[in-house]
Simulated scan of single mutants.
Amino acid sequence: MLDIDVVFDRLKEDYTRTLDETRETLKSLSVKPRLPPDSFFILRSGWAIENHISSLFRRVKKSMVILCYDPPGFLRKHYAAIKPLERKIDLYVVVRKKEDYVDIRLPIYEARGTVLDLLESSPMNESVIGLRKDVCTILVDGRDFLVIAAAGSGRHAVIGSDMPIIGYLQKTIVERLTRS
């Protein structure tokens, strides 16, 4: 008579061994995916957006510009992750009205001129993707970006990497902020 426990234990061992072998084979390949330079993606889940924000905060090496379109909700929510960056990188938090952010101890810059125009215009076209309220834009090391917008009770984000225009935009914003 066939012992079901023995059969299942054997299947489990075989399955685990096969998974371990597959993992080791995949590790040995060490293939790093390359995204084309003009790639971008839309994130639609809250978990994916928060995960990408955390990833940007961990990866930043030199500089970060955070453009805040809404009241300080985003900065309050992520303050514990942003505050330590202030000592490690050049950090610029750009807002419409500095007085709305007096309780947030970060390098806050009030937008003026062209930078204010940028904050007052929508980075994502509402008619195309149906988003209603911009939350923030994050530019990282002149190469990565994340734009978050709200739609009803949900949020969406557009992300991209290795885009030369981001470097130009980030540098221009910083120059305009530090000039005034």
Rank of each mutant, 00 (worst) to 15 (best):
D9C: 12
E175G: 02
R87E: 10
R105P: 04
S180I: 09
D3Q: 12
D5I: 05
A48K: 04
V147L: 00
R143H: 08
R44D: 08
L75C: 05
I166S: 04
A48F: 09
S45W: 06
R58K: 10
R96D: 08
L2H: 02
F74N: 02
E99A: 10
D38G: 15
G152I: 01
R132I: 00
Y109Q: 06
H78V: 05
T178Y: 07
P37C: 05
Y101L: 06
D162N: 15
L56F: 07
I108G: 03
V60W: 01
S63W: 00
G142L: 00
I108A: 04
C136H: 04
V94R: 07
S54G: 07
L29W: 05
T114S: 13
R17F: 07
K77D: 04
I165A: 11
G46N: 14
L11K: 15
P123G: 04
S121F: 02
I82A: 08
A80G: 12
I89R: 14
I49N: 03
D14L: 13
Y168I: 07
R96W: 02
R132C: 00
R23E: 14
V65K: 08
V65T: 03
I104W: 01
S55E: 11
L169I: 04
L75V: 01
L116G: 03
S28H: 03
M124W: 11
V93E: 00
I138E: 05
I66P: 02
V140T: 10
H52F: 15
I82C: 07
R176I: 09
V94N: 09
N51K: 14
P36S: 14
R132M: 00
R34E: 15
K27Y: 07
D5Y: 02
E21I: 04
D141L: 00
K61F: 01
N125V: 13
K62Q: 06
S55A: 07
R87G: 01
T16N: 12
E21A: 10
G46R: 11
Y101N: 06
P37G: 10
H52N: 15
A157N: 10
E99H: 04
P164Y: 11
V60L: 06
D14T: 01
I104P: 01
L26Y: 12
I138Y: 03
F40A: 08
D14R: 11
S63V: 00
P107I: 06
R58E: 15
Q170K: 09
K12Q: 07
Y79I: 06
I82L: 05
S121Q: 04
L2V: 12
D90E: 15
R143K: 07
V174K: 14
S28G: 04
L26R: 07
